[in-house]
């Protein structure tokens, strides 16, 4: 995708986005609702035409092709199964429209039914299936014509939590088995992190960061990405010196830490660093990177969140995994120290 834009009237839904999606990868467009991710997907599918820019597939410009001329299939958010057709007829629809011989269609449909674990359900009307089964028919229907790219528009959002978890694994498996490029749209960060090879985080029509789940989580490029994905502590500070990819930062809350520099460019003198709550630990007052007063202690089952009131007025959250032995936690109101591990802090671009 090259310098692509789409506006509806005066509203710019997608703003000059350039993305390079690699063959055979599980690529996710992640962002809050209204960020333009679905519009972007619809431009790849051909339901929307870009106002500017091009959609390229294997170096061929497909921007002006109609949806039925693109080797791209979509799994729709509400599945959009044809209610008047059976499961098998739904799955075979694309191949039939392509004019494939009946015997070939039957063979592919049988293979697809097996792939999505719906063997023997081919003659059922789709209206009799459960949500999860309909979801798998929608997947099989989009995979049957063997598209170059499979687009998935928040396909799991209508499923309950358990089913969603198992479908996530299922989707990952299908992608690996078929070797088809998946472009997945979601607003659920966990879904994006667990399934994707690479993620593009979008906001207000723009791509804020592209990278693997680990890159985006550990080294968020800007405040939006850091805030949108996972829980984050923001710490204000000033640059004290830098060497290579690391820099020393004097924190307003006290103490000096080493933090990773953002890609491309030295930061300004006043900067923000982000620290994930699980990358910090509580220590005795005076022995950590900086000190604070312990506020709320919230028990989450697998872990406990400690809210530390910093001396500059901010709040810093430390997450500690709960173990059976259960180390004694300090009391609310106590003075505590916060220790940051090596590589825990990352400087933001802006």
């Amino acid at each position: 995708m090259r310098a692509i834009s789409k506006s509806f009237g005066t509203f710019l839904a997608v703003d000059n986005v350039t993305l390079d999606i690699r063959p055979n990868e599980f690529f996710t467009l992640l962002g809050p609702s209204g960020c333009g991710k679905t519009t972007l997907l619809r431009m790849i599918a051909g339901f929307e035409l870009p106002t500017e820019g091009q959609v390229l597939l294997d170096d061929r410009d497909i921007s002006s092709l109609l949806p039925n001329q693109r080797p791209v299939n979509t799994v729709f958010q509400n599945y959009a199964l044809f209610p008047h057709l059976t499961v098998a007829e739904n799955i075979g629809f694309g191949l039939k429209m392509l004019g494939k011989p009946k015997a070939d269609i039957a063979a592919v449909v049988a293979r697809m039914l097996k792939l999505v674990h719906l063997d023997g359900r081919g003659d059922n009307p789709v209206t009799q299936l459960s949500g999860g089964q309909q979801q798998r028919v929608a997947l099989a229907r989009a995979l049957a014509p063997q598209p170059k790219v499979l687009l998935l528009d928040e396909p799991l959002s209508a499923l309950d939590l358990k089913l969603r978890k198992s479908m996530q694994i299922e989707l990952k498996r299908l992608q690996a088995e078929t070797g088809i490029t998946f472009v997945f749209v979601t607003h659920d960060q966990e879904e994006a992190l667990t399934m994707s090879d690479r993620i593009a985080v979008m906001s207000q029509g723009q791509v804020r960061q592209v990278g693997s789940a680990r890159e985006i989580y550990d080294r968020p490029a800007d405040r939006f990405v850091a805030d949108f994905i996972g829980e984050t502590n923001f710490l204000e500070g000033t640059l004290a010196g830098s060497e290579g990819s690391m820099a020393s930062v004097r924190l307003k809350a006290g103490g000096i830490i080493r933090a990773g520099l953002p890609e491309g460019g030295a930061p300004k003198a006043d900067l923000t660093v982000v620290v994930r709550p699980e990358h910090a630990e509580l220590a005795a007052a005076g022995s950590g990177t900086f000190d604070g007063t312990l506020g709320e202690v919230i028990y989450f089952g697998t872990d406990t969140h400690f809210h530390v009131r910093l001396d500059d007025g901010g709040t810093f959250i430390v997450r500690r995994q709960n173990t059976r032995s259960g180390a004694a936690a300090p009391e609310t109101g106590a003075r505590v120290g916060v220790r940051l591990g090596e590589g825990a802090a990352q400087i933001l671009k802006d």
Partner: peptide, 9 residues
């Protein structure tokens, strides 16, 4: 839309 997506004329 789904039908167009699946190559229907």
């Amino acid at each position: 839309e789904a039908a167009y997506d699946l190559y229907a004329s």
